[in-house]
Amino acid sequence: MFQLKHIEALLEKYWEGDTSIDEERLLKAYFASNEVDDSLRQFAPLFQVFREEQAVQFQQKTAIAAIKPQQYNWKPWAVAASLALLLTAGWWWVAQPDPTTDTYAVQSTENPASTTQEQQQAISEASQTVTPSAPVLAAALPRKKSYSRPIAKNRLNEEEEQAIAEIKAALALVSSKINKGRREAAKGASHLDNVDRVFKKKKDSEG
């Protein structure tokens, strides 16, 4: 397999430092084989040393264990994304105009000084039975807003009627509750008068 003359020539080139890496590998293979000629056997240990040293390996596992790919740190991004989501949701919620107040806003913009007849009537009915508190009045009276947006006419009417109906129902409920309270109070007062009369009679009879 190996030609002695070729190996001898290669070996001479090797000592001179003129061999290529492939030629040096060929020499290593030759001296690792069982075909080494007696005339060259004295150099075999040198190439054996090369093989031995090539087999030396880095054994320190702990050193490598310390070097691992950095895991992607997703936590700050998750927190930032959550915060952004919350802020966006909050902004969206605040920015959404209340349909009811919008109705009045549009109305008040179109004719700021006027209220509908139904509203006037509802307020006057409420005024007859009870002096409305500030929140009730605030809810009943139209509110002005600094902005308006176009709403379709039919939708405006529907929402207007619905709002009036709700106001009426609310005022009627308040009125009925207050009247009932008055009746109960008057009833309780008459009971007290009766008790007073009973005690007075008893006192007179004992006296």
């Binding site: 880095f58 054994q59 310390a66 070097i67």
Partner: peptide, 10 residues
């Protein structure tokens, strides 16, 4: 040598 390799790799 082990220390050197570890330091170089790091």
């Amino acid at each position: 040598a082990e220390d050197v390799v570890q330091e170089v790799l790091e």
